[in-house]
Nucleic acid binder design. Structure first.
Lengths: 341, 341
DNA sequence: GTGAAAGCGCTAACAC
DNA sequence: GTGTTAGCGCTTTCAC
């Protein structure tokens, strides 16, 4: 940087100022400095900057798994938006383990990050304590039902579960069920399931069976869960799935068994993945707006960084959208055909 | 750190030494320091460390898109392995744009990273130049056919294309085709397609049509491409797809049109995604071993960092695996039925 | 095996 | 609008 300053015949602090607030330097000085930077192929040293400023432009982003398409989408849109404001993403994953999360958070804090993005509202005591002792912005994403540390951006998984039950009931299904995987660790999926069960009962429908599996969600597990469901509860008319991969596997399983979807059994997913639109039949799903979560998170971090008044306990509800498709097409009521219920 | 030193009644440099090489400090001193660290809840400052050492433990990882499951898997396994050696992942994505990659690389270099991981062997002149002026390890992943900057870990996309043609030919298909998306940007997909065409011709089969689309690959695009293929080339017996999502869409499209897979048309994907095993019928695919790429990359970075002799121009072939499934089940030769060709 | 001292490249007051 | 100054918290020689 002093090389640049010497070349441009200004002081190092002017170069530093130009780099951080170009508008605070006179246009012509700015031009000379820009030229010197290009000429010397200057690459700044963020470590030195972070040390001097006691804060970096790194943002720690901690998700359970980036193999999960929803998180991948959010991380990507978050990164795009943060990148435009010259923030950088330091990535960590936890596999739904709070102890792992704590370790990742401690590591991230060592970089004196400008902000920390965590997934969900559940964290270990150690994580909370170490976060409380700093005053860096913390954004908790993908959940808003509960107490947040600082800022929360996401939606209510309870409402998703309820909306799924409502949708299946509205389309004329009475015997509902929920299948899902890894619900011991993925507590948000578990809460969607619980809310689904509660709402189904509240609607006066028979209590829906819930079948789970400990493995990470994929179409194979979905097929297995569907098989078990059909065998143990042949009366079921509609299945809500913990996510779209499970739903896809359920659809294939139904096909393999010669069951028509939705006539014999309706299927609904969660996640809004692209294949739900392309499948035969297209699968009804719930869009969580992962990209919006990323964008809003970036916006709040940038605003907070700019000193703008983003209050603590700010909660942004990004909502979700039920997307009805053919896999849950309205059922002709049995009474309409046979005259009985 | 000086607080820790004071508490442990040693000098700061001893604490520093303990943190970097615990074995270089006497066991009892080490124990006292460890106690002080725990007592004071000491969090190191990586910025200061990076500045003083003129190198950080951050590893810049640059992929086209983490929404792509193959890259997500690689980033995740890379991160897991690097994390165990106390390296941290600084993530960037390029959307297959070399100019974007150059910007991301420059940013990453500002962190004085311990290593840089780039995707593929194609980079802009600017990227090459700025990398050449440093001597940090550079690992190029997901491709090994071409000249690498430093270290390459991946597989040959040409061989994948050839293996796909071979597999379809061996299973008795004569009229082949290739469908794929975003092949203008995703040059590795384009090379799989080219090699597929070349090998098909070399096998004495009719030149296969190639149909592409500029959008990112997903099942919907796959269905569209399949539709266009069936309409323009009704004689086609087997389709190779640029990836599994395209193949899934193609399968659904075939179902919708009442075509039996594989009897009327065989389908083969690339990527080894979980749903290929669960679909009806299961889809033949090619496993790229993304997790292995991540692991090997981490291993090489750690070895190079430890001063072990990982030579420049080291190339690790992680290979790939053709997984034959029902969607390309052997075709009963027409001659066996009708006695003619 | 441990400590003293110098300085990494930058930022942020403050003075001009 | 620009320059001067004093560190930021660590690592790294080099003595001891």
């Amino acid at each position: 940087m002093s090389d640049v300053a010497a070349f441009a015949d200004v002081s190092p602090s002017t170069v530093s100022l130009y780099l951080r607030k170009p508008e605070a330097v006179s246009p012509q000085t700015g031009r000379v400095i820009a030229l010197a930077i290009a000429k010397l192929n200057y690459v700044p040293n963020f470590a030195a900057g972070s040390l001097a400023a006691a804060a970096s432009r790194a943002v720690g982003v901690v998700v359970p798994s980036i193999k999960n398409a929803a998180f991948a989408e959010t991380v990507m849109s978050l990164q795009t938006a943060l990148g435009k404001a010259n923030f950088h993403v330091l990535l960590g994953h936890t596999e739904y383990d709070e102890r792992e999360e704590e370790a990742v958070v401690r590591t991230a804090l060592s970089w004196a990050p400008a902000a920390l993005v965590l997934t969900g509202l559940g964290h270990s005591e150690g994580t909370r304590k170490v976060l409380a002792s700093r005053r860096i912005p913390v954004v908790e994403i993908f959940d808003i039902s509960g107490d947040c540390i600082d800022i929360a951006v996401g939606f209510s998984h309870e409402k998703v579960g309820e909306a799924m039950a409502d949708h299946l009931a509205e389309t004329g299904h009475r015997r509902l069920a929920f299948i899902g995987s890894r619900m011991q660790e993925d507590l948000r999926a578990a809460r969607r399931a619980s809310a689904f069960v509660a709402r189904t009962k509240a609607l006066g429908l028979p209590p829906p069976p819930v079948i789970g599996h400990p493995a990470p969600p994929d179409a194979e597990i979905g097929g297995m869960l569907m098989s078990r469901l059909i065998e143990s509860h042949p009366e079921v008319q509609a299945v809500a799935c913990s996510n779209d991969h499970i739903a896809l596997g359920a659809l294939f399983c139904a096909q393999r068994r010669g069951l028509r979807v939705p006539d014999d059994i309706a299927i609904m997913g969660f996640g809004g993945l692209a294949f739900t639109l392309a499948s035969t039949p297209p699968i009804s799903t719930v869009l969580p707006h992962g990209d919006l979560i990323g964008k809003e998170t970036a916006r709040l971090i940038i605003e907070r960084h700019g000193g703008k008044g983003v209050d603590r306990s700010t909660v942004v509800d990004t909502h979700f959208q039920v997307v009805p498709r053919e896999s849950t097409a309205p059922r002709v009521a049995a009474s309409a055909i046979t005259g009985t219920i």
